[in-house]
Amino acid sequence: MLQLVTAVIQPRRLETVKDALKDAGVAGMTVTEARGFGRQGGHTETYRGAEYEVEFVPKVKIEILCGDEDADRIADAIVSAARSGEIGDGKIWVAPVSRAIRIRTGEVGTEAV
């Protein structure tokens, strides 16, 4: 079976996380610029003397498709590379994937990763 590891991290941590994932031997990853909020729900900035809410904070979302046996190791690698100990460090979730296909070769399942 396949798993999809999704992590939302601080943009400034992307390099470190990528290096950690390469060291962990991942075959590929997808990176998306994302915006969101967690428990603290954004923050306030000033512009030209008036305040405004930054309700959606810039984040980076990374997705890694991997085999069942690698999912925990990959999630742990992300946690240790992305943690600063401050609020907004991010979230990771893992979900089962029912089907994956490698487009060029038509391979499916773990072969496709």
Binding site: E51, Y52, E53
Partner: peptide, 16 residues
């Protein structure tokens, strides 16, 4: 004013 320039409370909200 532009839409969203003032909050429901009437306070100015910057549009950067």
């Amino acid at each position: 004013p532009r839409l969203g320039r003032y909050g429901k409370d009437g306070r100015p909200r910057a549009i950067p």
